[in-house]
């Protein structure tokens, strides 16, 4: 039979180490208090909510049967689903040259393997700002080698089809920042790809194609 004092001694083997641990951690907390928030901020910068998957998820919000593809004069901003990075939101085509490629929001290597990509610092069709698209000259944008001034390029989205008439094409160096202006208050379609076509090796030149919008629904609610 264990006596009361013996029980006390046995319990002490448990609560005394716990007591020491609590006091120890309190002292560490007090000492580290000035730097704890800094460490936690740095920690939150380098960690995520979940373990990373390291993949760009290629998804699609594009619906070629969308009722909004029927010609409408205007579309409210609230009805437009904004694409996330890596999602196909449109189809870019030009019948005369045989261009017909899925258009993705974003422009990393995974996206360009699947179709044409859009620089996310540019605007969506209908938003009255420049649209910058890119694609490989041996896959999605191969047909651009035949494009001419006057050709019509269409971008079909879930909220409407926008048509752009090619007004200019030029070859520029890939580092030439004057080749496009994303700050202009004009809806200009700019497509670019490596140049020349059917060239094996590294090329620093790019073919730029510029188009002005000629049709497509206006978006209401834009401020």
């Amino acid at each position: 039979m264990v006596s009361k004092s013996q029980w006390k001694r046995i319990l002490a083997y448990f609560y005394m180490p716990v007591f020491f641990t609590i006091i120890g951690y309190i002292i560490i907390y007090i000492i580290c208090l000035p730097v704890i928030s800094t460490f936690l901020s740095i920690g939150s910068l380098v960690t995520g909510q979940d373990s990373s998957t390291f993949q760009t998820n290629i998804t699609s919000i594009y619906d070629d049967q969308s009722p909004l593809l029927q010609s409408q004069k205007s579309v409210p901003l609230s009805s437009i689903e904004m694409p996330s990075f890596g999602s196909q939101y449109a189809q870019v085509s030009c019948q005369r040259i045989g261009l017909d490629a899925p258009l993705y929001w974003g422009d990393n290597s995974t996206i360009l393997r699947n179709g044409a990509g859009q620089y996310i610092g540019s605007s969506l069709p209908g938003f009255e700002r420049p649209i910058l698209l890119c694609g490989h000259n041996v896959t999605a944008f191969l047909p651009l080698q035949s494009i001419e001034i006057g050709d019509q390029v269409s971008i079909s989205t879930n909220y409407g089809t926008y048509t752009y008439e090619v007004v200019e094409t030029r070859v520029a160096d890939m580092n030439d920042t004057s080749a496009y202006d994303l700050s202009q208050n004009k809806e200009q379609l700019i497509m670019y790809t490596c140049y020349p076509f059917a060239f094996m090796g590294v090329t620093t030149q790019r073919l730029f194609i510029y188009g002005d919008r000629i049709s497509g629904p206006d978006i209401t609610g834009l401020d």
Partner: peptide, 30 residues
């Protein structure tokens, strides 16, 4: 004995927490 037990607890508490929650797997590094 209290000291050695407390040491075992103090040293193992944070590593156990990290190993169980696997917080370190959420590092954003590629």
């Amino acid at each position: 004995a209290y000291s050695f037990s407390a040491t075992a607890l103090m040293v193992s508490l944070l590593p156990c927490y990290l190993l169980i929650t696997r917080t370190y797997t959420k590092i954003n590094i590629s």
